[in-house]
Design a protein around this nucleic acid. Structure first.
Length: 292
DNA sequence: AATAGGGACAACCGCCTTCTG
DNA sequence: CCAGAAGGCGGTTGTCCCTAT
């Protein structure tokens, strides 16, 4: 779904959400608008931030004439409108990094997001809940159980590494610079130096379409993002290492495990018809090989 | 063709921490 | 130093879309 589709989707939802009067923690005295954002609100917010910068969200909302809480404006900007927000499928590299960082830090979504340029904590959280937890459910084990963590670490993460390697080998000939230019700004100042109109709205807020017809493009862009991302995060084991660097430098400890210890779980997995980009048919075949 | 159920994800909630006057 | 405001964060909800039946 591309960005404008999202917006249209939001508009469709708006009518049904206007009667949402649940109270937050900062709107006791005023009628703040809730629910989906309209294109006009988005443009107002973007233009205001372009002119005045972000921060002081409550006063920003007031001075921009938005009938929204400061929190709502902040969330909309950080999770959706910022020019450097990446949209589109989570790449293999990103999946690997999410799994690794989550194994270290648990549900510290914002901390994890700091190491996935362009991804928001909300997006990573949603990914974890909808994709990873789904598979824990299929294995009939708790997502926090040692059993599931071991399965992730000793089976799926090494498998992801293999697939990343295979992917990078096949992509070596591809010139990816052009697409990368649109994806990540390494400049920490994210206030756009431009004005937004309805005409350029899509191009300035859409960074990578989830419906990108070039299957490898997002992955390529991601690989470049990691190599370009500034190592200045401070506390990542604490330096930032790209997923590719992980396996190149042996940072990930994928020790050999007795696959048969997990045979019961894996057999169950093989019975399931699971075919997204995390546990796909290829993985099923791989597991089958391991089990036989 | 209709519909039920699950997936996906934007948005909200409420608590906690940090900032500011 | 203190109180209120603002910001940050993780958890949860609501609703449309997609797919299987």
């Amino acid at each position: 779904m591309d960005h404008l589709q999202h917006v249209n989707f939001d508009l469709r939802r708006e009518a049904s959400s206007n009667d949402n009067n649940k109270k937050g923690d900062e709107d006791n005295n005023m009628d703040f608008k809730r629910g989906s954002w309209t294109i006009e609100e988005d443009l107002t917010l973007m233009n205001h931030i372009a002119l005045h910068g972000e921060g002081r969200w409550n006063s920003l909302a007031l001075s921009a004439g938005l009938k929204r809480t400061g929190k709502s404006c902040r969330l909309r900007w950080l999770n959706y409108l910022r020019p450097d927000v990446r949209r589109g499928n989570i790449t293999l590299e990103e999946q690997l990094l999410i799994l690794e960082l989550h194994s270290r830090w648990g549900n510290r979504w914002s901390k994890i997001a700091q190491h996935l340029p362009g991804r928001t904590d909300n997006e990573i959280k949603n990914y974890w809940r909808t994709r990873v937890q789904k598979h824990a459910k299929q294995l009939k084990c708790d997502v926090n159980s040692k059993q599931f963590k071991d399965t992730l670490r000793y089976l799926w993460m090494p498998r992801l590494v293999e697939r990343i390697q295979a992917s990078s080998n096949s992509n070596n000939q591809v010139n990816i610079q052009q697409s990368n230019d649109n994806i990540i700004s390494n400049n920490n100042n994210i206030v756009p130096n431009m004005s937004f109109t309805q005409e350029n709205y899509s191009s300035t807020t859409t960074t990578a379409s989830s419906e990108n017809s070039i299957g490898t493009q997002i992955s390529d862009m991601s690989a470049n993002c990691y190599t370009n991302y500034p190592i200045n995060q401070g506390d990542y084991g604490e330096s930032l290492i790209s997923p590719t660097d992980y396996f190149q430098h042996g940072a990930l400890d994928f020790r050999t495990v007795d696959i048969h210890d997990n045979q019961q779980n894996m057999s169950q997995l093989l019975l399931d018809d699971v075919s997204d980009n995390f546990w796909n048919i290829e993985d099923m075949l791989f597991l089958q090989q391991q089990l036989n």
